[in-house]
Structures are given as structure tokens and as C-alpha cells.
């Protein structure tokens, strides 16, 4: 039930209009095979098989408790922090199992950044928030740190709003700005993948639209996996969507296809609001 191969094409919505790239030609960034996951004795994920193509936005949808956030956190091994968890199966990033004994956890977390549901800026200046990661990694060169801050704030679509007050407290920013700051901070360690867990759930429509535009921009450089309860948001921003239910990946594929003619009745019932 959980096996997925992307055979169709996804739509690229860009300045040139809708150009459908061949997904078969897209390199898989993550390849998850036969993944099972347990919190103690309780199994949260059942035999998940999923490929997340590089430079795409992948949305994970499903009712509360379906396992989508658990799955997201597995992708940078954040569940390791929870006692009593275990897994079976493979999660490959660029062809290498992230749970392999030779895998470096720090390097993994640097490559796979995370943005949380609630914006969580540190009680520091805007500048210090963005360069926190590179500083912890040992970078001391001020000019280099400033360069990173500017690049990340630009990529986070926040630069124009904060460039004249980089030393002011990040806590003075609006909710939408704080969330974009967190995205900028996540970009500062040069990740290849951004995991986003409900990044717009606490934001107003205008801030949500800015984050969604940003997600679209970012996928040129990054692979993005986003968990959302907002069906329309998943439809708007993502290239591929996976529907989780009761710990299983029920259906996954090109977003356009999933939202116009889902193959599975459970998917259809969920996205049309008939259950869940």
C-alpha cells in the first residue's frame, strides 16, 4: 500500500509558465524504504516507501496523529532525542543511509535544516540569530558572518525589512517576520534540505502568502519537505504530496494529480473533507 514510484510528471510553476519536468529524470534526494518506526511499543509508522525528489517541494498531509510529523523528524534523526524510539528500514540521503554507523549526526543536521510550527527566535539580535549556526561551527570572521547574514536574510525574503536594524532584538519582529527569520537562520548553515513543520499555522494570510512565495523561491536551491494541515497550502506550494493515515503512506504522487484525481478512496475522502 505504501509503495510509491513517481511515474508521472510534476508541474513546474515558474516565470516561464507551467513547464512539466520529467520526475523520472529528477534525482531522488531522500529514498525511504520499508520504514517502520516505534515509540516504545507503539508503532507510529508502517512500512513507508517514499522518494523525495531533489529541488522539489514535498507536502505531507493527513489527520492529526497520522505520523507525518514523526516521518518529517526522522529525516534529520530528531526522533533520536526521544527515549524509547526505534526504527527499521532505510532512509537514504543521496544514496547513503542516515542511520548508517559511519553517518555523522552533526553533518546530517547541518545538511537537513528544520523550521518549526511556532517561530522560535533566540532572545538575541536579528544578526546574531542568523549567524548563530556558523558561529557555533567556529566561524569568527565578521565580514564573512555579515555576508552570510545578508545572503540568508535575502533568501529568507526579510532583508529589505530588517537591513537597517540588524542589531535590534529579533523578538521585536512580527510573527511572520520571525518565521522568515527562522527560515533565514536555517539557511545559514548551508543545508541542502529544509524540513518545515506547519510553518504558517500561526500566521495571518499575508504572512502566509510571503512564506509560500519564499518556499517556491527556495526550491530552486533546496529540497523542501513541509508538513501542513492546510490542504490548500499543500496544493499551492508543493510539487509532490504524500497522504498519511494511521501511520501508513496511503498515497503519494504529483500534487496536481492527487488533488484532481487521487487514486485512493481514502485520500479522496480526506482531501474533500469527508473524514479526518
Amino acid at each position: 500500500m505504501s509503495t510509491l514510484t513517481y511515474q508521472a510528471i510534476i508541474s513546474e510553476r515558474n516565470d516561464q509558465g507551467r513547464t512539466p519536468p520529467d520526475l523520472k529524470a529528477t534525482r531522488p534526494k531522500f529514498a525511504v524504504r520499508n520504514l517502520n518506526f516505534w515509540y516504545g511499543k507503539s508503532q507510529a509508522l508502517h512500512n513507508i516507501n517514499m522518494t523525495i525528489p531533489e529541488n522539489t517541494v514535498c507536502a505531507l498531509i493527513g489527520p492529526s496523529g497520522c505520523g507525518k510529523s514523526t516521518f518529517l523528524r526522522i529525516l534529520n534523526r530528531m526522533n533520536d532525542l526521544i527515549e524509547g524510539t526505534r526504527h527499521s528500514g532505510q532512509i537514504e540521503l543521496d544514496g547513503k543511509d542516515i542511520y548508517d554507523s559511519s553517518s555523522n549526526l552533526v553533518s546530517l543536521r547541518r545538511r537537513v535544516g528544520m523550521v518549526f510550527q511556532k517561530s522560535n527566535p533566540f532572545p538575541k539580535s536579528i544578526f546574531e540569530n542568523v549567524v548563530y549556526g556558523p558561529r557555533v561551527a567556529g566561524l569568527r570572521n565578521k565580514a564573512r558572518l555579515y555576508e552570510i547574514a545578508e545572503r540568508c536574510l535575502r533568501n529568507g525574503a526579510l532583508w529589505d525589512e530588517v537591513k537597517d536594524r540588524l542589531n535590534e532584538s529579533a523578538l521585536a519582529l512580527s510573527g511572520g517576520q520571525q518565521q522568515r527569520l527562522c527560515i533565514a537562520r536555517a539557511l545559514a548553515t548551508d543545508p541542502e534540505i529544509l524540513l518545515m513543520d506547519e510553518p504558517c499555522s500561526a500566521l495571518d494570510p499575508a504572512s502566509t502568502a510571503r512564506i509560500e512565495d519564499l518556499i517556491f523561491e527556495l526550491k530552486r536551491q533546496y529540497t523542501i519537505v513541509i508538513v501542513t494541515h492546510n490542504m490548500q497550502q499543500a496544493a499551492r506550494v508543493s510539487d509532490v504530496t504524500g497522504f498519511f493515515f494511521q501511520g501508513q503512506l496511503i498515497e503519494s504522487g504529483p500534487t496536481e494529480q492527487l488533488y484532481t484525481r487521487p487514486a485512493n478512496k481514502q485520500t479522496e475522502d480526506y482531501i474533500t473533507g469527508r473524514f479526518g
Binding site: M231, Q232, A235, Y259, T260, T267, E268, I271, T272
Partner: peptide, 9 residues
Amino acid sequence: HQPVAIDLR
């Protein structure tokens, strides 16, 4: 309602 799937069709 921004319908999807069968409702959209």
C-alpha cells in the same frame, strides 16, 4: 469551498 478531487471535477 475550493473543492478538490471529485468535488472539483
